[in-house]
């Protein structure tokens, strides 16, 4: 048991160390959300005014948690998908031949990717004053576990997928046909409250919409775009994490 925990810790630590060593990646992790928030967000907000709507500033405030969610989701997903490459040509190959159980490898990878995703998500909180959102210490204390949980849900989903993937090409296809639709239907970029029924239905069955809703409710409080009560969001996200982690662990153990 001690040995397995040490294995989980080692795999987790490696992801963390790699993240802090990779300066271009840290810069990119700040630059991309900034681009979305200030260029796309400001552009969209001003276009609403052009078409006669008000609420440009509210839209930016709405979009801010969406951008944090986006960062967390994409980071966690790509980290999980790096398994496909890593298994053939990287560190993971080295781990797979070591005497560490497959379960510990999956758990370590999940925790590592989720921690990095959480850190990247929390960095973006620094933009909060610019979009005029008040972030106090309480909401940060809530956001740490919340972003971590949201990352775990996506990461465990990605790991379960990666277990079955044999090539990087398949990964491109998955990104286009699974991740992007899930992201668009998550409510990160536009509110789903006023969406047509079919869109609303798709959003409801999209697990990501619950994590996005959770993060948004924590950051901007009760609002007109809220889809579900906070405790429902948390329960669903926890449930997805549990189910997907179990699937990932089973799949990796089956392949051993």
């Amino acid at each position: 048991m001690r040995k397995e925990l040490l294995g989980v810790y080692t795999i987790w630590l490696r992801d963390i160390k790699k993240f802090f060593r990779d300066r271009p990646r840290i810069i990119g992790s700040i630059a991309q959300p900034a681009l979305f928030l200030f260029v796309l967000g400001s552009g969209l907000a001003s276009s609403f005014q052009l078409f006669g709507g008000g609420g440009g500033q509210q839209f930016l405030a709405f979009m801010f948690p969406g951008i944090i969610s986006m960062t967390v989701l994409f980071t966690a997903f790509f980290s999980a998908m790096s398994i496909v490459w890593d298994r053939e040509f990287g560190f993971l190959k080295e781990v797979l031949v070591s005497p560490i159980s497959r379960t510990s490898i999956v758990v370590g990878k999940n925790l590592g990717g989720s921690t990095v995703a959480m850190i990247q998500g929390l960095i973006i909180l620094a933009f909060a004053p610019i979009v005029k959102i008040n972030i106090n210490i309480i909401s940060i204390l809530k956001l740490v576990p919340a972003t971590f949980l949201a990352a775990m849900a996506v990461s465990s989903f990605g790991i379960a997928l990666a277990a079955k993937l044999k090539s990087m090409q398949a990964f491109q296809v998955l990104t286009n046909f699974i991740l992007m639709p899930m992201f668009f239907l998550s409510g990160a970029l536009f509110p789903l409250t006023n969406a047509p029924q079919w869109l609303k239905f798709l959003a409801r069955i999209n697990p990501l919409s619950y994590s996005v809703d959770m993060l948004r409710t924590i950051i901007i409080g009760k609002n007109i775009t809220q889809l579900h009560p906070l405790n429902i969001d948390i329960l669903v996200t926890l449930g997805i994490t549990a189910v997907m982690s179990a699937i990932g662990i089973i799949l990796f153990n089956l392949q051993d």
């Binding site: 040490l6 080692t10 160390k17 790699k18 060593r21 781990v95 070591s98 005497p99 560490i100």
Partner: peptide, 21 residues
């Protein structure tokens, strides 16, 4: 195929391996 982490030092690479074993 090389499976080293090239952003880590030689010592860190070896240390990870020692921990895994």
């Amino acid at each position: 195929d090389p499976t080293l982490d090239d952003r880590l030092t030689a010592m860190e690479n070896l240390n990870f391996h020692a921990l895994l074993y």
